[in-house]
């Protein structure tokens, strides 16, 4: 089965790149400030401010990728397969801070972000993705596995489009690659395989 990457976004400490080219950041270290990126991209999504940093970066990458275009599929036929290393560890550490014996005020708003897959949930809400979903953890991106698993879901007719990628954030370092996978290609489409994902990740 031929699958294609028709859109993508790479967001890392080196900056932001998409299928449309590089996003021009007025300040070099702006990529470390999700709030500033929100303003730069002129987003209007008040929920953004309530999210933890991993989710903020997830939404920023999603916005760069989809550019506010509605997804032309039924919600239930869109899958989302994401992977990362640290999961919610950054927020776990913040929540742990609210559990001091002499200052015990566990924060419910932090706790609900202490799961690796919440960023996937936020992306599902934002882009109305209701189909097959999976969040896996690995030391480094396992693009072979992501391709294998995503392709299997297409072959088994469980999805018709899929948001696939690596999404990681820890100690101020965002490291994200999101790709949009479809069965139809346009002129700029790339084949969905290990080599494409590896070259986009650089």
């Amino acid at each position: 089965m031929d699958l294609f990457v028709t859109k993508y976004c790479r967001l890392s400490s080196k900056g932001i790149n998409t299928h449309k080219g590089g996003v021009n950041l007025p300040l070099n270290d702006m990529v470390y400030d999700p709030q500033a990126l929100y303003t730069l991209l002129q987003l209007s999504y008040p929920k953004f401010f309530k999210m933890d940093t991993l989710c903020k970066y997830g939404i920023l990458a999603g916005e760069c990728l989809f550019e506010r275009n509605p997804l032309s599929y039924t919600s239930s036929e869109i899958g989302i397969i994401l992977s990362g290393q640290h999961g919610s560890l950054d927020t776990d550490e913040q929540f742990q801070q609210t559990l001091q014996p002499d200052n015990f005020f566990p924060s419910p708003a932090l706790f609900v972000y202490t799961l690796s897959n919440i960023v996937m949930g936020e992306l599902c809400i934002r882009y109305k993705i209701k189909g097959e979903n999976l969040f896996t953890v690995s030391a480094t991106p396992d693009y072979d596995l992501l391709c294998q698993y995503t392709t299997a879901l297409f072959l088994q007719k469980r999805i018709n489009a899929c948001l696939v990628g690596w999404i990681d954030y820890y100690q101020r370092q965002p490291d994200i690659l999101l790709v949009w996978v479809e069965t139809t290609s346009d002129t700029n489409a790339l084949p969905f395989n290990y080599n494409t994902l590896t070259s986009l990740y650089i």
Binding site: S107, P108, A109, V112
Partner: peptide, 13 residues
């Protein structure tokens, strides 16, 4: 509802 719970923490703290 999470905001409501967070407000309860605010009032206590």
């Amino acid at each position: 509802s999470i905001d409501a719970l967070e407000l309860i923490v605010l009032l206590q703290k």
